[in-house]
Amino acid sequence: MSVIAVLVKASLNPDMVRAEPDGSIDVSAIPLKISDIDRNAIEEAVRLKQRLGWKLVTVSVVTWGPVSARMKDVRLAVQESLAKGSDEAIVVADDALTPGDQTLTAKAIKAALERSGIKPQLILAGEATIDEVTSQVPGRLAALLGYSYVSFARKLEVEDGKVIAERDLEDYVEVVEAPLPAVVSVTQEINEPRPPTLLQIRRASRKPIKTFGLRELGDIGKPSRKLLEIKAIQARRKQVIIEGETLEEIAEKLIEALAKEGVLQL
C-alpha cells in the first residue's frame, strides 16, 4: 500500500516565552506545541489519504530536551495528527539529539522511516516551524532520499504518479509538476485546518506510536550546531493606554501624544 508521511514538530511556543530581567531565556522552561503550519500539512495529508486510499504515517523528531520532560507535549502534538486521521506515528526521541539541529532532524527522519520499513510516496511538511522558521528540513530530506521536492505549495494535487502544485513565491506563483516520490512543503494558505472532534481524539488513543532512540537508528551523527546565547528582544514600548470619557476625547489625546513624539505630519 502506498504511504503518505507527514512531518510534525513539537515546537517551542513563541507565545510562552518568559525572559529573565537580563533578557536571558531558559529554553527548557518554554512549553512545546504543535507548529501551526504542521496543522495545514496534516489537513492536506488527510484529504489526500481519503481521496487516494493511502496509508498516513506521522513522523516527529524531538528537538528540544530533556526528552523525559518533553514527552507529554510531544505526545499531544502527535496525537492531534492521529486524531485528524493519521494511522500511526513514529517518534524519534533521544537526549543525545537535543537540542537538535536541522541536519540531524532530516537524517533522523530518514533513518526512522528506513528502520520502520516505510517508503513513503509522498512526504508533507509545513513550510516552516514557529520556533526556528528555517524552512530547511523538507529540502534536506528530499536530497537525502533522492526525492523530487516542491516547496511552498499553496495548492496540491496527486495524480498518475506525480504531484501538481502551485508554488507561492515572493512575486509570482508557479505551477509545477514533479514525479513521485516527492517531498512537498505547504504554506498556511493551502487550507483551513479543522480541529479534531472529541470522538476522533478518543479513537486516536488506540493508534500505535513507535518510539525510536539513537540505538535503534544507528549512527546518524551528533548536532554540530552550538547554541551560545538566547536573549529576548525586549519590547521597549511605552504601553500607554489612552483613556477618556468619549472616543472624541481619546482621539484628541492620541493626536496630542503623537504630535509630542514628533511623528505626525499634518
Partner: peptide, 23 residues
C-alpha cells in the same frame, strides 16, 4: 533568504551534509 534559495540551499545542505543557518 528568498523562497527559491531556501529551497535550493536546503537541498544542497542535505546532499553535502552542511550546516545551514537562516535569518
Amino acid at each position: 533568504g528568498y523562497r527559491n534559495l531556501r529551497d535550493a540551499l536546503s537541498r544542497l545542505a542535505g546532499s553535502l551534509d552542511l550546516p545551514m543557518i537562516t535569518d
